[in-house]
Amino acid sequence: MIAIAELTSIEQLSSMRLLWRALLGKTRGATFFQSAEWLEAWWRYCGEGQTLKVLCIGVGGKTIGMVPLTVRRETTDVGRLRTLTYPLDDWGTFYGPVGANPTAALYAAMRHLQQSPRDWDLIDLRHVDEARLDQGRTANALRMSGLSALEQTWAELPAIRLDQWDAGEVFARHSQLRRAEHQLSNRGRLISIRHRPAGNDVGPAEMRRDLLDDCLKLLRDRPENERQLIADAYHAAALAAMVELNLVYLNGRPAACAINFVNQGEVDVFAAAVDPELAPAATDVLRGRMLLDAMDLGDTVFRFSPRTAWLAEGWSNATLTSSRHTHFASVGLRAQLLRLNQWGRRLLSQKPVTVSDLPA
């Protein structure tokens, strides 16, 4: 028998953290963005005006999965609509349910939404890794629950697959790195630092708050709530041994930085910045050191979100496509108007609707 508990406040997550962490460890292709700690940090700085809806899926008295969702009002071509979606906001590349059985979790979650009092106008599941992880699960869960949905492209983002670099590529990247290092070294003392806390006992020394502070100096133009989110997410990911810092210093001052989330050889570039006075050489040093050192650590792929895609320019050798699945409430006039609007635009263009085409 399937049982579903609906968590609607961030305080309720504290009692679920250990269980959530265990489920995350069983999730294929998991990232830190799917952790309870990410949701707590994201909610603290980005959740204002939204309604939390975390669905805990249980079978036979055992929790098998979590489906984290949020309801928020978004501006569309037909006015503001209540949108039920994943809590990511383009900070990462992909998102999905937590647990070893995403098929059962998604189906149970969609059935629950279909049968519960509706507090949304759209179900808009974005950032779905259709090709690698989802493989039709989201579409099937919606359809089997009686929720018709429009499937579209959400975003196409760059990636760097280190496992596809041959000897010639590695040599070319080393040469590019040496040229950039030589250029910056002519202006003073150049230092590169990579810090990746490891193990289950990360203390103050391993946190390296000093390095994080230098990253935040380079990110000073970002809104304050984003800087606070970056700092809190870094601390939480460090405690979980799922983060790394990459920094380039020139004459003791930070010149470039990247904060990444890591898990089992896969890296998500979370936040990055370069001193504009030192670009593009500082960009090449940051990127070159980060990627070439990663090969020695056994990392296989770097993924770049819309916020960090600029760092992959000229180095990307793969494109990652995420999809979105949108169900429009059948009894909502504006939701149906939006559905007709989007179907019409899709038919006229004869191509998938991308993130830039649709309400954000």
Rank of each mutant, 00 (worst) to 15 (best):
L239P: 03
E206K: 01
H235Y: 07
R227G: 06
N251E: 04
A241H: 14
L190W: 09
L216Y: 01
N225Y: 14
C257T: 12
A233R: 02
R189G: 06
A256C: 09
R222M: 15
V202L: 05
L239G: 15
L212N: 01
I191M: 12
D210G: 05
A198N: 04
R187C: 03
N200L: 05
V248L: 00
N246R: 02
R178Y: 06
N186D: 05
A258V: 11
D232W: 00
E181S: 02
H195F: 07
F171V: 09
R178G: 01
A180F: 09
N225E: 05
M207E: 15
L250I: 08
E206Y: 02
E181N: 03
H174F: 06
L245I: 11
E244T: 01
Y249H: 15
R179G: 11
L184K: 04
R189Y: 11
H235V: 11
A231G: 01
G188A: 08
L247C: 13
R173C: 05
R209C: 04
P204S: 13
I230C: 02
V202S: 04
S185T: 01
E244P: 01
G199N: 10
R227D: 03
D213G: 15
Y234Q: 03
P197W: 03
H195A: 13
A238T: 07
A241L: 09
A256G: 12
V248A: 02
L229G: 10
H182N: 09
E224A: 07
C215F: 03
N186C: 13
R209I: 03
S175K: 15
R209K: 04
L211I: 09
A238P: 03
A241T: 02
R178C: 00
A172W: 03
L239T: 06
R208A: 14
D214T: 09
E244F: 02
C257L: 07
N251P: 02
R179N: 09
N246E: 01
A231T: 00
A233D: 04
G203Q: 06
L211C: 14
L190N: 04
P254V: 15
V202I: 15
V202A: 03
P204Y: 07
A240L: 14
L212F: 04
A240S: 15
A241M: 10
A233F: 04
Q176E: 02
A231K: 00
V170Q: 08
S175F: 14
R179A: 10
V170N: 05
P197C: 02
R173S: 08
P254Y: 08
L211V: 10
R220P: 15
R253V: 13
C215G: 12
R178I: 02
Q228R: 12
L250C: 10
N246H: 13
E206G: 02
S175T: 09
P223R: 12
N225I: 05
V248Q: 01
A236S: 14
A238W: 12
I259T: 12
A238N: 11
C215H: 11
A255M: 12
M242H: 13
V202R: 01
P204F: 09
L229N: 11
A240F: 06
P223A: 12
D201H: 10
L218Y: 12
D213S: 10
R253P: 03
Q183L: 13
N200M: 03
G188R: 10
L212I: 01
R194P: 06
R196K: 10
A241S: 15
A198V: 11
Q228A: 07
A255S: 10
C215A: 13
R227K: 11
D214L: 08
R178W: 07
R227P: 05
S185I: 00
L245S: 10
